[in-house]
Amino acid sequence: MGKKKKKTDAGGNGKSFRQLMFRDRYLLYMLIPVVIYYLVFCYLPMTGLIMAFNQYQVGSGFLGIYTSRFVGLKWFRQFFGSIYLPRLVRNTFLLQFYSLIFGFPIPILFAIAVTQIGSLRLQKSVQVCTYLPYFISTVVVCGMINNFLSPTGGIINQLLNKAGIDSINFMNLPQWFRPVYVISGSWQTFGFNSIIFVAAIMGISPDLYEAMRVDGANRRQIIWHLVLPSIRPTIILLLIMSLGTMMSVGFEKVYLLYNTAVYETADVIQTYVYRQGIQSNNYSYATAVGLFNSVINFAIVFTANRISRRVSDTAIW
């Protein structure tokens, strides 16, 4: 027994690095391809961030990343002085902020409602229906949005016309971009995001329900005094975790939905980086803008994690 214990809890008491490497050699063999992957596709690109401080010339290849002329903070100064900065930060933040305000409560409400269904089979069927949009590709979702909202033959405008309202060209009006983005995003994710809340509610001990029922509590009281308090830790944890994504908008959906007419409300940091870097070949400048975004994201996640640790004793790391 004593021997066993030593084996499990010891990181490697008294053993040299080489002995440990030999002992765990099979684990290390397994990790070789994994480590290569992470070095090449994650950590090597991180060293490439040096580009944000030099003048990378298109065509100077991989080594050009490290050997180009050093220009210091030139690209950051250019970005901070540009008219794009406030617009990009505002759009990025507001898309995420509205998504959170609008999208966060819906999975909770849905989870509470769906667990009120008496039959477990019916509950599962309802849930499956709501998962479906989550697994549909961004391209198809954007294609559906675009065609449903189209002023020529889109169903939404057909319905508006039947109600006597003129067609609205949703996709070309800046004031419509955020509602369309937020509502469609919520449509796509609410069912899937409710899974965790449903599981939390299903995890409440049946004895507690029984006790409340014996006490004469009705459904409303059970939800208010038993269900909500039980899922509060889950709510707080997920809320804090989603705060961490405040400045990272998914690139694909904005890219597929926006056009020059709605840049004013739709252009976000990620799409700007793509246009500047891949489309206009301003590699160094785009890297600097991307780095700016990464640093902000990292700071936000870090802060959210600190708050989480303090409030709920649950931290991401």
Binding site: V40, F41, C42, L44, P45, M46, T47, G48, L49, M51, F62, I65, Q270, V273, Y274, G277, I278, Y283, A286, T287, G290, L291, N293, S294
Partner: peptide, 10 residues
């Protein structure tokens, strides 16, 4: 992450 551009070049 290193971001779009360095990954793209690599």
């Amino acid at each position: 992450s290193g971001g779009l551009i360095p990954i793209y070049i690599i």
